[in-house]
C-alpha cells in the first residue's frame, strides 16, 4: 500500500505538488489523471525517490521511504516511463535482467525469468530475447520496458504515461495487456496519464490532479458523478462527462432480470459479459434497437441507461 501524507514539492517558489494526501490500496490500480504540469508525474516519482518531497512523507507498507536507501527501494518498485529508456547497448534479455542481476540472481534463474516475462508481455522469447532495442517497434519496446519493470517481481509498479507515445491501436493492445497482467499478478500500480479514455479503461481508483493539488479521488463512478467539481467536469469535457460516466457503470447492475412473462426476444443483440453501460449504448446505436440482451437472459432498455446515468 502506498500512502502520501501531505507531500509538497516546490521548484523555486512554485509548488508543483501542493500538500497532497492519497492512499493507494494494496493490489489496486490507481490512475493519476491530470494535464501536463499538474504535478502527477512529480507525485509518482516521489514513491521511488526519484523526487524527494520538500514536506510530508511517503509510506510504503507502513514504512517511511525516506528511511530506505534509494537503490534498494527501487529494486522493489518497477518503473516504466513514456520514452521507455531501454539500454541501447544491451540485448532485450539483458535489459529485462537488469534488476535480477543487481540482486545477484544466478544465470539460470535470470534466463528462465526473462523467458517467463517475455511470455507474460506477449512476445515470443525465442524471437525477442537476443534482439537489440533498435530492432523493436515502439509497442514492442514498451512491452520490454514493462517486462524489465516486472523482472524482480516487485510488489509496486510505477508507470509514467507509458503508452502515450504509441499509436492508438498499439496503445489499446498494451492497455488490455496491462489489465490482464494486473489481474494475474495483483501488483499495486500507480499509473500516470493525461488521457481520459485510458484512465477510465484502466482505473480501479482515479485521482485527479490540477496545479499540484488533488481535486478528486475515488472509484471512477464517484469521481464522475453529476455534482462533480467543475474543474473535474472541465477536464473530462462537460459535454461528454455523462458518456464517460456510463463507461464506469456495469451493465449487469442496471439490467432487468429475465422474467417468465416477458421472455427476452431471441433477435436482441447480445452484450458481451462484463460490459459497461457505454458499451451497451454503443451496441444499441450500432444495431438500431432500444434493447439489448445480457448473457443469462436479462435485458437492458434504453430507459434503464438513462435512469442509471
Amino acid at each position: 500500500m502506498i500512502r502520501f501524507d501531505r507531500v509538497t514539492k516546490r521548484y523555486g517558489h512554485r509548488a508543483v505538488v501542493d500538500s497532497v494526501s492519497l492512499e493507494v490500496r494494496k493490489g489496486g490500480l490507481c490512475v493519476l489523471l491530470g494535464e501536463s504540469g499538474s504535478g502527477k508525474s512529480t507525485l509518482m516519482r516521489m514513491v521511488n525517490r526519484m523526487v524527494e518531497p520538500d514536506a510530508g512523507r511517503v509510506m510504503l507498507d507502513g514504512t517511511d521511504i525516506a528511511n530506505v536507501p534509494p537503490e534498494s527501494l527501487r529494486h522493489g518498485i518497477g518503473y516504466v516511463i513514456q520514452s521507455v529508456g531501454l539500454f541501447p547497448h544491451w540485448r532485450v534479455a539483458d535489459n529485462i535482467a537488469t534488476v535480477p542481476r543487481l540482486l545477484g540472481w544466478d544465470a539460470a534463474r535470470v534466463a528462465s525469468r526473462v523467458d517467463a516475462l517475455l511470455q507474460l508481455v506477449g512476445l515470443p522469447p525465442e524471437d525477442f530475447r537476443a534482439r537489440y532495442p533498435h530492432e523493436l517497434s515502439g509497442g514492442q519496446a514498451q512491452r520490454i520496458g514493462l517486462a524489465r519493470a516486472l523482472a524482480a517481481d516487485p510488489p509496486v509498479l510505477l508507470m509514467d504515461e507509458p503508452f502515450s507515445a504509441l499509436d492508438p491501436g498499439i496503445r489499446r493492445g498494451l492497455q488490455v495487456a496491462l489489465r490482464r497482467i494486473h489481474a494475474e499478478t495483483a501488483k499495486t500500480i500507480l499509473f500516470v496519464t493525461h488521457d481520459v479514455e485510458e484512465a477510465l479503461l484502466l482505473a480501479d481508483e482515479l485521482a485527479v490532479m490540477q496545479d499540484g493539488r488533488l481535486l478528486a479521488h475515488g472509484r471512477p463512478a464517484e469521481v464522475l458523478r453529476r455534482d462533480a467539481d467543475p474543474v473535474v467536469k472541465r477536464l473530462f469535457g462537460e459535454a461528454t462527462l455523462a458518456f464517460h460516466r456510463l463507461g464506469t457503470l456495469r451493465a449487469a447492475n442496471a439490467a432487468r432480470p429475465a422474467s417468465a412473462t416477458q421472455p427476452a426476444e431471441a433477435q436482441l443483440p447480445i452484450l458481451p459479459p462484463d460490459s459497461n453501460l457505454k458499451q451497451a449504448l454503443m451496441l444499441m446505436l450500432e444495431s438500431g434497437t432500444d434493447q439489448v440482451a445480457l448473457p443469462g437472459g436479462a435485458t437492458l432498455h434504453l430507459s434503464d441507461i438513462l435512469a442509471a446515468a
Partner: peptide, 27 residues
C-alpha cells in the same frame, strides 16, 4: 546519453558508479 536511459537506469536502482560504468561510458 539519452536522458530517458539515465532515468531508467536510476529508476531500476543502479547506483551512480554502476550507471557510469555500465551505461554512460559504454554509450
Amino acid at each position: 546519453v539519452a536522458p530517458a536511459v539515465l532515468d531508467a537506469a536510476r529508476g531500476t536502482g543502479m547506483g551512480a558508479a554502476r550507471v557510469l560504468w555500465q551505461v554512460e561510458l559504454p554509450l
